[in-house]
Amino acid sequence: MKKLPYFILIAVASFFSCSSNDDATETIPSVDELYFPPVNSDTWETSTVSEIGWNASELQPLLSYVESKGTKAFLILKNGKMIVEWYGNGENAISNLPWNSAAKTLVAFTTGIAQNEGYLNINEPSNKYLGKGWTSLTTQQEDNITIWNHLTMTTGLDYAVINNNCTDPECLIYKDEPNSFWYYHNAAYTKLHNIVAGAVGNDFDSYFNDKLKDKIGMQGFWIPFGYFKLYYSNARSMARFGLLNLNKGVWNDSVVLDDSDYFNAMTTTSQNHNKAYGYLWWLNGKESFRGPGLTLEFQGKLIPNAPNDLIAGLGKNDQKMYVVPSQKLVIIRMGDDAGEALLGPSSFDNDLWGEINKFIN
């Protein structure tokens, strides 16, 4: 296996809570207690850099760096409160920006809700909801592909076709047995929209809005783009979703995903072929990883400069949603390509975390 330092990103999830003082005569809220902004309001509480003890002198250098890399929105939450909210390169707080493949995490989460509500089981064949003949495979080959394979990029469909995004049956060709190899196959992912829609008996967008988006006060919309859909929202909406996952699917006192087993499986290594991948989430801190567009495995962490327990949604042109449970951080970066024009993880992740560390440590 080859060594490729500083290439990609994202990591694992394990949430930890604060200890309590058994001798206290009354409950005193911890400074580390998570804050959740109101669902139907633009209000978002803030904390100052001095209050949390970060290095204030490094804030402006960090913002200058992200601006120089084509960033349009950059947010840092600590314990749910807004510490940094910056916009530039022609955009502002109400700008709707594309998530690109970072939105795969929205689909993984929504699939978990559908399973929890009894509409589907991720171990079922996906053709139960897509119908027979959604591929060019034989019936037996197609029956072997499960929803879980779509979530983990292990369908075995041929990723070397001319258009990796094409979801027409003639583009979905047998290459390997399911779960025998990992490859970042956009067409196989995109079919999850149809799987969820077929299972719940409603269009995906409406189900997503009702069960996830509206529950946490997000705004945004899915836009068809060729064979797939892109999600657009403002940066605060991405931060809301990051905060929901920081709290393992619970928004304040409202449970959005009532399935801890699914959440844990979604945010930990899902298969043996790419240790840095869960259910459409990227995971840091693993001993090896594979990246989009590649068939090679590389030794080392996805993002060496980032905390080991980081999990992330990563999209083309460096859309970043970092969630760090051990530090109760959510960090959002949206904007233009920072220099490599890759599908998701890039060396920018490691460079950016090098700058972030100067500020938060």
Rank of each mutant, 00 (worst) to 15 (best):
L296I: 09
G278V: 01
K175T: 00
A188Q: 04
N274S: 07
F36N: 01
V66D: 03
W251T: 02
A102I: 02
E297W: 00
N186K: 06
G249S: 05
G156Q: 00
S206Y: 09
I311G: 08
Y232G: 00
C171T: 02
Y232I: 09
L257I: 14
V324Q: 01
T269K: 08
N21K: 09
M218K: 03
E177T: 13
A265N: 13
Y207I: 13
A239F: 08
N305V: 09
K104N: 04
P169Q: 10
I8G: 07
I223R: 12
N350G: 09
S254I: 11
Y262L: 10
E170N: 10
P38A: 10
S68H: 12
P307L: 06
G335W: 05
T152S: 12
T27F: 15
R333Y: 01
T167Y: 04
Y262M: 05
I223E: 12
Q115D: 11
C18M: 07
L77S: 03
N116Q: 14
F289C: 01
L212H: 07
A108F: 01
N350P: 06
S288V: 03
V31P: 09
K211H: 12
Y129C: 05
F221P: 03
V323C: 08
Y227R: 08
I83Y: 02
A199W: 02
T111P: 06
